[in-house]
């Protein structure tokens, strides 16, 4: 097993971002577990910092670009040319900073003076979803599936930052994206089409304008329920938290990370994927669908040979 894994392994730098070591541990845990299973050797960037998120983007262009540039400089000093970012906001911000500096020499100069350095090499920035979908590939994922998610009705929710604006993220489609649909289909899930794939959840207004976020998330969760979904599947921890906390007063529709579903299909236990850390527990739904227990290890030895 071990040798087989090494032979195919891809090394990539990993930028988890603040939420994944704060309120979104389930996303971090499941991302790391799934990358391990998919033979992606994640190397966390040493001393990475916050990208400034929406507060820096809103208030101070130089600071915002500089915080991203600081992390790009760290990434440029690592052996891998690829940088994987699970958080769509961090992904878009770092990518955008790279583009903005390439287009605007004056900005580039101010930023480099602010961070006191420039990258040793430019890195290729990927969202984790994009990397798994495009680089690892659906066939390779499919080959490793040992527990197809048959009978699980899911609605894929992409949110904004991963796909919008397309000019910046260059990923999938801003209105009708399909990559997450395709991935979930490859896992054997029953993927339901709907119109809310990229409707905004209200993002960073969760605390300061809670009523706006409740209005936006309310519509999304209502539609998902009307579609009789067993779960909403997301690629963003901000969407996850908003839909779970602000979608309904007493919500009961699980909101899961795509990495958790990959993990389940690859035979990992719900617990190891952080399924027990959710505010809306997916455990009753998972048990009802036959995913409550860990699959015995012995049965998956031959898979992926």
């Amino acid at each position: 097993m071990e040798n087989n894994r090494e032979k195919h392994s891809i090394t990539a730098s990993y930028y988890p971002g603040c939420s994944l070591e704060g309120t979104a541990r389930a996303y971090d845990l499941s991302s790391r577990a799934v990358c391990w299973e998919l033979s992606i050797d994640l190397q966390e960037l040493p001393k990475w910092s916050c990208c400034g998120s929406s507060p820096a983007l809103k208030t101070d262009k130089l600071l915002s670009t500089a915080l991203s540039a600081h992390n790009l400089n760290i990434a440029g000093a690592q052996p891998s040319d690829d940088l994987l970012i699970p958080c769509p906001f961090c992904f878009r911000r770092l990518l955008s900073a790279q583009q903005e500096m390439a287009e605007d020499p004056e900005l580039k100069r101010s930023v480099e003076e602010t961070v006191e350095g420039s990258p040793e090499k430019p890195v290729n920035i990927h969202s984790l979803l994009g990397f798994i979908h495009d680089r690892v590939g659906l066939d390779a994922v499919k080959e490793k599936v040992v527990r197809p998610l048959a009978g699980m009705r899911v609605v894929p929710y992409y949110g904004c930052y991963l796909v919008k604006p397309h000019k910046t993220t260059q990923y999938d489609h801003p209105e009708q994206p399909v990559s997450l649909d395709e991935l979930l289909t490859a896992l054997g899930a029953d993927v339901v089409d709907w119109d809310f794939k990229t409707e905004c959840c209200g993002a960073g207004l969760a605390l300061s304008k809670t009523d706006t976020v409740e209005r936006l998330c309310g519509r999304i969760v209502k539609e998902a329920k009307w579609k009789r979904a067993d779960a909403i599947v997301v690629a963003c921890q901000l969407c996850q938290a908003n839909l779970e906390m602000r979608g309904e007063k007493k919500g009961n529709l699980p909101v899961l990370y795509f990495t958790q579903l990959i993990g389940l299909a690859l035979g990992l236990s719900p617990e190891s994927l952080g399924m027990k850390k959710h505010l809306i527990s997916p455990m009753p739904m998972l048990k009802a669908k036959g995913f409550g227990e860990k699959r015995p290890k012995a049965s998956r030895v031959e898979v992926g040979e």
Binding site: S54, T59, C160, H166, K167
Partner: peptide, 27 residues
């Protein structure tokens, strides 16, 4: 309020990205 969702930028016929304007006004 602008959350930089980028929806306007994708739909605008002349590709105006409003969240860049939000930053300028805030500064």
């Amino acid at each position: 309020y602008c959350v930089s969702c980028g929806t306007c930028a994708g739909r605008c016929p002349v590709e105006i990205n409003m969240y860049e304007v939000s930053t300028a006004l805030c500064e």
